[in-house]
Design a protein around this nucleic acid. Structure first.
Lengths: 219, 219
DNA sequence: CCGGTAAGTTACCAATGAGTAGGTTCGGAT
DNA sequence: ATCCGAACCTACTCATTGGTAACTTACCGG
């Protein structure tokens, strides 16, 4: 039984990213050490440097791959269906990711090295802002809504899902992903759906009988 | 001009917490060094240890104080007014905090030492869960809503506000706190307000016109 | 079988940073 | 004035860690 069998370049590389992900996930970037990762991979330190150059290189590679994974899942989920379905699908995809890839999710939510700007969730958020503007484009236009506020809602929605994901993962997963997704999606969806034209106006809870061309739909 | 005048115990302690907060905010717990904090306070390292025992001691003191500050602001904001006002007030209070205490907010959102369990936002969230259950108690009861789902919504709302706060602080604060708060509050409020009785049931997009009796269909 | 290349190793450096021992000086109270 | 405690400093120890140089060994094609 040759335990110490050599691996090919790409194999080793993949394995190191796997191990590194787990270590970064549980200790954070700063507290994780290359030695630890190397040792846990059954290999010595210079190997890591041979493949990734520096600590940040390994970290960046891991984060990038994880981001791609997450973005792809979400992209897939919102590729078809009604707006509502796409929305709920996105939330479910996100939660499913946190469940299936807890280590990856942990890496994404933990602190990044200061030199690498918050490359983490920012990307998802920008993407989400785009999608939000896209999915709700019609509704936004018709409601006379200003799209420049889209980032607010994108951030709100992503933060919502992220935080629920963290809680849900930390807790013993009390509910199924589907159930949680339904709740969260309903919250976000209904929030967007029933958004007043201009939330910054006073008394936006009930629309008063102004001259506005909006029939008082009492909900 | 003797700038190097000695400070009394409590004074030095307060100053160290101030400086420490800023350093922890910009570098994170692990990357921050006691030397750096001491030097920036115009004092030598042992002084820090004299006051706080260890790195974690200083950090814990800072986090605790910051949490108290935040919780108090929010508690104050939701102490009176209509449900809607209290809700919006809480959001505004949160955003105001992120604006007035960016360093404190950064410390709270950054990684904590692994030994100190996620003491950060968990506390706010639990508190929020309580408040959510409280504020929406009547609505929840009347809607036949199960309060055990409150944590989901609490986490969703806190995450929403937190993420918006991060984005808003990172960006050049494109809008006023009031404006952002209105938008976010509207999103959350409307979401909660128009929540279907049971989001896990299919097709909850449009509410049926029968508003009162809903046959207790099992899921 | 054998030689070259890629995989892997040992052993080190330099820097950093947490934490401490022991001495020094300031400043107020007697 | 002088005394005493609190505030403060210098100067370490010790362990860790990112990163590198130089060497060794397994594997594979010819």
């Amino acid at each position: 039984m040759k335990r110490k069998q050599r691996l090919s370049g790409p194999e080793r590389r993949a394995q190191l990213m796997e191990v590194g992900r787990s270590v970064f996930a549980s200790h954070g970037y700063e507290a994780a050490s290359i030695d630890q990762i190397a040792h846990q991979a059954g290999v010595s330190k210079p190997i890591v440097y041979e493949h990734f150059g520096a600590k940040e290189g390994l970290y960046a590679a891991i984060v990038d791959r994880e981001m791609d994974n997450l973005v792809e899942r979400i992209s897939l989920a919102i590729s078809q269906g009604s707006s509502r379905q796409r929305f709920e699908g996105a939330v479910l995809a996100f939660l499913t990711y946190t469940k299936e890839q807890p280590a990856g999710f942990a890496v994404l939510t933990r602190d990044s090295p200061s030199t690498l700007a918050r490359r983490g969730l920012t990307r998802v958020i920008d993407d989400a802002a785009e999608r939000v503007g896209e999915v709700f484009h019609i509704a936004f236009e018709r409601a006379g809504y200003d799209r420049k506020f889209a980032p607010i809602y994108a951030n709100a929605l992503v933060g919502m899902v992220t935080q629920v994901g963290i809680w849900w993962a930390a807790e013993g997963k009390p509910f199924t992903a589907e159930k949680v997704a339904k709740h969260v999606a309903a919250l976000g969806w209904m929030g967007l759906r029933h958004l007043p034209k201009d939330p910054t106006l006073p008394r936006a809870t009930r629309e008063p009988k102004k001259k506005e061309p909006r029939p008082p739909a009492g909900k």
